[in-house]
Every structure is written in C-alpha cells, then in structure tokens.
Design a binder for these strands. Structure first.
Length: 270
DNA sequence: CTTTAAACCTGCTGGC
DNA sequence: TGCCAGCAGGTTTAAA
C-alpha cells in the first residue's frame, strides 16, 4: 500500500535481513514459479533494490525476482522457520540460515533473467526513480520540459511512472501544494520560478517522506499523524478536506483528478 | 497523442 | 456477529 518512499524503506529492511546470505529454501504460491524453488535454494541474494514501486531481488544464479505490491502487497521479515499467521495469503517465502522474508497478497510477481530485465514491459518504460540520489533539480526541470511531458497537465503527469518512477497519489497532492501549483497547469506554461519550485519539491517531498518514515503505518490510513520526530513527514493537504490550509487558513478542497482523489488549497495554489 | 473510465488484484472499514 | 458495498496509497486496457 505504498508509494516510492515506503517501497524503498521496505527494500532497505529486506536487504539488511538477507543480502549477502545464502538461501536455504525458496517457496512460491504461483504454480508458474514453483520450478524456481530448487534453482534458488543455495543461491546468494546479491541485492534488493526498488525501481519506483517495483522491487528487484537479484540472485547470484543470473535470475531476478520482480515484484510489485500494487495497493495491498506487503513484505514481512521473520526469523528462519517462523510463519507469522497474518490472515493474508502468502505468495513468496525466501529463507536463509537466520532470516526469512515473506511476501503476502501481491499478485504481480515474476522471475526474469537478470540480463533480460531491461525488456520487462513495466520496468522498461519507467522514468528515473524520484528517490535516486543522483537525480538533481536541473535534471528534473529538464525532464519537465521534455516534449513528451511539457504539454501534459501536472495532475496526470505526476502519477505517470514514465515521468518519474515512485511518485504516487499522496505525493502528488503534497508536491503540488508545496510548489503552490494547480493540477491543471502544464510544464511548458510555467514561469521559470514556478518550474524551479516544482523541480525542487518533486525531489524534496519524496525525500523527506523517505527520510522520516513517510506514512508507514501500523494498521491505519492516517498513521502519518503518529510520527514522533519534530521534522516528521505530515500530510499538509492530502486527506484533509475541509481543514484549514496550514499556510493561509483557507479550507482544503478535495477533487477528482483522473479517477484518483487530489487535495489542494485553492488560495495558495495557482 | 492525451484524458477518462472501467476492470483487475486484494484487504479493510463502515453501515445495515 | 455477519455480510456486503464501497474505498484504497496502483496499473492496465479500452474508449473517447
């Protein structure tokens, strides 16, 4: 149930648990993947890394596990041999000597030859990961002005994974609010200062979310309110219809944009 | 080409 | 308590 920041934090935890370790066993619920169970036993997990919201788990036998959690998939980490009964359906289990990583509920799971991953129909079309530390404001500004994107409305563009992978629905509202822009604006019509602000917020909002635990939740949709540190990530407009804008006090509006909800301050955003 | 709508995957919540 | 409708932070497909 995640956007880029939540996926990346999950990847960090998984990597810490099993990267560099040798698999004792592998298990798949998908009949089409069960032929890999024997081939993965004894393999070393080389890396676990996200690209946008997709997760790539690479093994030292030339194969990579592709998984996408969509709205509902969730990874858990347990001590080897354990299976916490969650009520959810277990889809993948990778077990090392010490730890096991378990994927529940996800349906978009596949094994790919590592050297053929570039041909994956979803991965191959993704834009740069918005949380890639080498991505800078100049690159994002240039991408906004790319002819493929410059004429699009920001509302649609910010959810398009071909533009920036890892963006998602709460980030869209928060980025547009931080940049003080309305979703119907288009990159090519922005003033230079607006374009710069948008590029800056496209990087800083997701990074802030990632750095401060984002909206990782303990069972509730509004768990962003539970974060404790002073600089904790909070929704300023998302999910706050009718509440006063933190900048000007105007009531925050909820709109439909595409088929997704979008929140904005009609006074701050232009 | 862009935008919109519906479908799909699965889980959770709220209402009756 | 139990069932069902509706909704969700995602993506694909088809239609407009």
């Amino acid at each position: 149930m995640p956007e880029g920041p939540e996926i990346r934090r999950a990847a960090d935890r998984l990597a810490e648990a099993v990267v560099g370790e040798r698999l004792v066993s592998a298990w798949f619920a998908f009949p089409g993947l069960q032929r890999f169970e024997k081939r993965l036993a004894g393999c070393v997990v080389e890396s676990i890394a996200p690209h946008g919201k997709a997760l790539l788990t690479r093994f030292d036998n030339g194969w990579t596990l592709y998984s996408h959690n969509q709205l509902y998939g969730v990874w858990r980490i347990t001590d080897a041999g354990q299976r916490s009964d969650t009520g959810r359906s277990l889809r993948v289990a990778l077990e090392t000597e010490r730890k096991a990583i378990l994927l529940y509920s996800a349906s978009d799971v596949a094994m790919w030859r590592t050297d053929e991953l570039h041909a994956h129909p979803f991965l191959s079309r993704l834009g740069p990961d918005v949380l890639d530390s080498t991505l800078d404001e100049a690159a994002v500004a240039a991408r906004l002005l790319d002819p493929r994107f410059a004429g699009r409305s920001l509302g649609g563009l910010l959810l398009d994974q071909r533009f920036l992978a890892g963006m998602g629905n709460y980030l869209r509202s928060e980025v547009l609010f931080a940049a003080r822009l309305l979703p119907q604006r288009r990159p090519r019509d922005l003033q230079a200062s607006e374009l710069a602000a948008l590029a800056r917020e496209l990087l800083s909002v997701p990074r802030h979310s990632y750095a401060t635990r984002g909206i990782e939740h303990a069972g509730g949709m509004r768990a962003d309110y539970l974060t404790d540190t002073p600089d904790a990530f909070r929704f300023l407009v998302f999910d706050r219809e009718g509440e006063p804008c933190p900048a000007c006090g105007t009531r925050i509006q909820r709109q439909q944009n595409g088929s997704r909800r979008l929140y904005l301050c009609p006074s701050c955003q232009r």
